[in-house]
Amino acid sequence: MSQEMLYCAAGIALFGIGMFGVIVATHIIRKLIAVNIMGIAVFMVLLATARHGAVTDPIPHAMVLTGIVVAVAGTALCLWLALQIRLLGRGTKGEPPR
């Protein structure tokens, strides 16, 4: 089993774990961690397929670099929205707003 294939398989396994986590987890931060794990999995598959023996394809690398920065921005936006919901609505399930 070559290195690329190993990391491709690991990336797909990681993607599955992340997907399971996104659906099953109830806490918002855990859901976001699962989404980020799915992101890492996608990056892993991209970078593993970028290797052709000795030469490395720089275009997937650039895409992954862009992806990392956008992922952190998206995570921050989600966290901020969650904080807003918590601060403004004060509780989620049936608790009366303050």
């Binding site: 109830t26 806490h27 918002i28 969650a82 919901i85 918590r86 509780g91 989620t92 399930k93």
Partner: peptide, 12 residues
């Protein structure tokens, strides 16, 4: 049904 706090009743 999302949880925002830790150790909430988890009906979700």
């Amino acid at each position: 049904k999302l949880e925002f706090k830790e150790n909430q009743a988890t009906s979700g």
